[in-house]
Simulated scan of single mutants.
Amino acid sequence: MPLRVAALGQLPGTLLAQLTDLAVSMDLVVLGQAPDTRAAASALSHSIPDIAVVSTTFSDGTGFSFVRELPAGQRPVGLVFVGAREDEAVTAFELQATDFLLWPAAEGRLRDALVRAKQQVLQLSLLRTADELQRLLTEAGGSSGLDLAGLFRGRSESTVAATGGDTVRRRRAAGGASTGTLIASSPWRATGRTGDVRAKGGRDGEEGVLDLSQEDGGRGETEGRPLRVLVREGRRTRFVPLVDVDWFEADGNYIRVHAGGEKYRTRGTITAIEAALDPRQFVRIHRRVVVNMDRVREMSPLPGGDGLLVLGDGSTLRLSRTYRSRVR
């Protein structure tokens, strides 16, 4: 089935013409253009496209404001911003854009952006399929022996290979020293579900739990690194495996834990996370963000010395120039 593309905002006529031409060869359906926020909001409320090509300029506002105020359920998976200034790229990627096109763009650049957006849509579809299959296997009361993570990891590798060989990222050597070598990106990994429990105890203490609400992280005299992070949801306590965590984000006196497409909130600080976790795997990239380097797929420079990290699921994070040396 063709993927649906919406054109939002005051996009250049030459870009719209290219988009129409590319739709046929790329198996896309262009839903039409909405030049102002009212028309765009109405279009998304009736049919949410898989991909949106969004101008930074609307006739009655900005594309950034429009996307920022969109309800989560109306946001397209693939999001390509189009603007006339380089510095707009920073805001675009802060809004988790798939790509940013500086217009006028070189020939083929729009196609590259659409390929990346399609890849993100397909990866999310694969992830949802894996999740549903795992749920069905669990409900059946057992496992067929099928390695879902390995299956979808292999499919993702094929997708990455098919969309170009420039998807690379800088990885640290095992000892933590910077190698400065570009290594082919690892694909996203399908993660297991996090466990739900009512209270902490039993094997949880033995496995090592990071409790950010306590001054010492709940570690006390325990040796070694924690394997899970504790978050509280009302009266319930949830233990999220650290291998499932994509990144930690500071939010005032709280920390948002991003894991496998889910978000959890707990009291704590970024400083406490840095102190408790393996600095070779969990690296601070911004004053508010610590990322799991196993999730990073590629790194790209941004104007002003900052950088952009693209994760395996297509999420994008801003790399502050202050912390850039830590991920080289």
Rank of each mutant, 00 (worst) to 15 (best):
G224V: 04
E223Y: 01
E221P: 09
G205K: 10
D99R: 14
L242H: 03
G217L: 13
T316I: 02
E86D: 08
L11M: 07
G252Q: 11
S300G: 02
T91M: 10
D60W: 04
R68H: 11
G261F: 11
R109N: 06
A113Y: 03
G9N: 12
V29Q: 09
G145R: 08
L124T: 05
S300E: 15
G13Y: 00
A275S: 15
E274Y: 09
S320F: 02
F66K: 05
H46L: 15
G73N: 12
A39C: 12
I270D: 11
F81A: 01
T129S: 07
F152Q: 05
G201N: 04
G164N: 09
V90L: 15
I255T: 02
L16W: 00
R135T: 06
T191E: 08
R280H: 13
D147G: 12
A105W: 02
R318A: 07
L101R: 09
A43K: 08
L133F: 06
P241R: 07
M1P: 15
A117V: 01
A276P: 06
N253D: 11
T129F: 02
S25R: 14
T138F: 13
L22R: 11
R171V: 08
S125K: 10
E157A: 11
R116T: 03
P279I: 03
D50P: 06
Q123Y: 03
G13S: 10
T138G: 14
W188M: 02
L44N: 05
Q33V: 01
D112M: 09
Q18W: 01
T237N: 00
L311I: 05
Q120M: 08
V54T: 06
L136P: 00
G202I: 02
T191D: 08
V229A: 14
I285W: 07
G205E: 13
R128F: 06
V160H: 10
G224H: 12
A272T: 05
T271I: 05
K118D: 01
F66P: 04
L317Q: 13
L302M: 07
G78L: 02
D60P: 10
E206H: 05
R170L: 15
E94H: 11
S47H: 12
L95A: 14
A250F: 00
F66E: 05
L31N: 01
L136I: 14
L122G: 09
A149G: 15
D211P: 06
R324S: 14
G180T: 08
S42R: 10
P241G: 11
T179C: 12
K118E: 04
L31S: 05
E221L: 15
P279W: 04
S42I: 06
A117Q: 02
P279D: 10
A52Y: 03
R135C: 04
D251F: 13
G176W: 03
V29K: 05
H286L: 09
R189C: 01
L277F: 03
S25E: 13
Q214E: 13
T316R: 14
A276M: 00
I183Y: 10
I183T: 15
A140G: 14
R153A: 10
L151W: 04
Q96E: 14
A6R: 00
G305M: 07
R225S: 10
S178I: 12
S156R: 11
G141Y: 00
P12Q: 07
